[in-house]
Design a protein around this nucleic acid. Structure first.
Lengths: 116, 116
DNA sequence: CAACTGTTCTAGTATTTCTATAACAGTTGT
DNA sequence: ACAACTGTTATAGAAATACTAGAACAGTTG
């Protein structure tokens, strides 16, 4: 399980970590019952603080995507299924947007605003 | 032309202003050639600082969605067409996501990460 | 010329993000 | 029981970002 982060991005690191996990879940690379790498592991390999990773994990917990308990770690829940179901649609939309010359930020913002 | 903002949101005001304009463009409520309300007007009606609105406008300019010149204001460009073309797809995706119980933030993040 | 536009500048406050360190408290496997 | 692993909580501080404030500048329009 690999979590990627771009230190040069203006997107907060904790948000990038959460987004990375979400994307893996949507792609089916993370299934219900799978355990995320421990926060300390991720913090060490990304060379960021433990709290930064934990904040990302807590965000995922707030969304119901993982269960967290001390001693056990963060475990993926059934709530990732909806993400996986949307995966193909999201890919299709992203491809169209790219073909039209839109940026990821523009499309994401549009989606978010449309949803509200 | 109405720009909405939620002061309680954790999303920066300037980003909300830009997102509001993008959504209007995607919905066809803003067409190429239309002029945005002056930054001072918007700042006054939203009770925020002029610079906050200008930052939003500059973001839209960076995306190529508006042309800005002093004295004239911010004018919508042809670049809004791609947004309008995606409008129906975005609405459809948002509806599916909502039906699946996802939040706007979750979906937006997923879209952004998928695009990269 | 007057009234409008965005642009630029300086400056300060508040909030958010990230780091750092430490201790605490469940869980798991030996 | 014990060691080694988990997340949780607390405190503190540094750095970056968001927002405000006021002023002056420079094109555009009627």
């Amino acid at each position: 399980m690999l979590i990627r982060v771009d230190p040069a991005s203006d997107v907060p690191i904790f948000a990038q970590v959460a987004a990375s996990v979400r994307a893996d879940a949507a792609a089916g690379r993370l299934r219900p019952g799978d355990r995320l790498p421990s926060a300390r592991e991720v913090a060490s390999s990304l060379e960021v603080n433990l709290h930064t990773v934990l904040r990302a994990y807590q965000e995922l917990r707030d969304e119901g995507l993982v269960d967290m308990r001390r001693g056990r770690g963060a475990v993926v829940t059934d709530a990732v299924e909806p993400l996986a179901q949307l995966h193909d649609d999201v890919i299709a939309l992203a491809q169209r947007a790219r073909a039209l010359g839109l940026s990821p930020d523009t499309l994401a913002s549009l989606v978010k605003e449309t949803f509200r």
